[in-house]
């Protein structure tokens, strides 16, 4: 009896198990491909330069003793404490100004009716198609004339125009999901429009603000284009700009016979140090982040 049942169900069971197994194998393989480079970087941060330059097998577990001093050596090789400070100032000011202006503009577009609203909103969306690289040379000239080169301002102030169309769009979509009855109730209670913005809108768009602040954070923290063009004085460099000193490739060093001078282990420990805070913030905020983008619907 029992064998009969097994016989009857076995081809089906077999195929189902096989498919499940295949799914998992594919998923795990892709997962490994996605994060392998990072694991390699983490492990490499604890190896010596010689180990890294002579490695002929893939070894994700660094041989003992682990080289913790790589982190200190690399950090002090250039003024990375200074770079960190610069990056923090730029990032915090950009996020704060970007969220403030983006939410104000988004509130205006979502709730107020005024002449030319649709036209202005169309312009905002249109600017998504003009990447900052296109206007680089006139912008450079402008900052030069303003005397802003080698200051934080070129990297902060442009973010105050709503931080970019994407954030205005994201927040506007989210605000439109908040029932207008809430506005009405607040208004009856004697709230001014500013009061509605502060006490009704802002407290209710938390997830969208979280999503926007992650994107703003990633932009400022990781940006290379801005620092590369506007910051030539290494007192004002950001972390990303500082890391660029490792850009010369292994091939160049090998060709010039200077491979031994290449501080590959320092780069790996610096890379680890600069990405860990980002990873941490992403993992903390990711729940809000997902709901922020999902609720706004992202309907183009």
């Amino acid at each position: 009896m029992a064998t009969e049942i097994r016989q009857a169900s076995s081809p089906w069971m077999y195929r189902r198990t096989l498919r499940l197994l295949l799914n998992y194998v594919v998923a795990i393989a892709i997962g490994i491909v996605m994060i392998f480079p990072l694991l390699w970087m983490f492990s490499g941060a604890l190896k010596t330069k010689e180990m890294l330059l002579e490695e002929t097998v893939i070894n994700l577990i660094p041989p003992l003793p682990w080289q913790w001093h790589n982190f200190i050596d690399a950090w002090t090789a250039l003024a990375f404490t200074r770079f960190l400070f610069n990056t923090l100032v730029i990032t915090v000011a950009s996020i704060f100004g970007g969220l403030l202006s983006a939410s104000m503009v988004a509130f205006g577009f979502a709730r107020l009716r005024f002449v030319g609203r649709n036209f202005l909103f169309f312009i905002v969306l249109g600017t998504m198609m003009v990447p900052m690289q296109v206007t680089a040379i006139p912008t450079f000239l402008l900052f030069h004339r303003l005397g802003w080169l080698n200051t934080y301002l070129p990297l902060i102030v442009p973010m105050w125009m709503g931080g970019g169309a994407f954030y205005i769009f994201l927040l506007r979509q989210y605000i439109m999901t908040i029932p207008t009855e809430l506005d009405d109730a607040a208004k009856i209670d004697g709230c001014s429009p500013i009061g509605i913005y502060r006490h009704v809108i802002m407290p209710n768009i938390g997830p969208a603000l979280a999503a926007a602040s992650i994107f703003l954070f990633l932009h400022s923290w990781n940006d290379l284009w801005g620092p590369l063009i506007y910051l030539t004085d290494d007192n004002t460099w950001t972390l990303a700009r500082g890391m660029l000193t490792f850009k010369r490739t292994l091939a160049e060093f090998r060709h010039g016979g200077g491979l031994r001078q290449y501080q590959i282990h320092w780069f790996l420990s610096l890379g680890t140090m600069t990405m860990l805070p980002v990873l941490f913030i992403y993992l903390v905020l990711q729940r809000h982040f997902v709901s922020g983008v999902v609720t706004s619907g992202l309907k183009g």
Partner: peptide, 26 residues
């Protein structure tokens, strides 16, 4: 979450890191 992780890393780090990962010897 895993698929999104590379997106949060600085392109400078990615660019230099892949110089090692794609190096002909190491």
């Amino acid at each position: 979450s895993i698929f999104f992780v590379p997106f949060v890393i600085s392109l400078v780090v990615i660019g230099i890191l892949f110089n090692f990962l794609l190096d002909p010897t190491i």
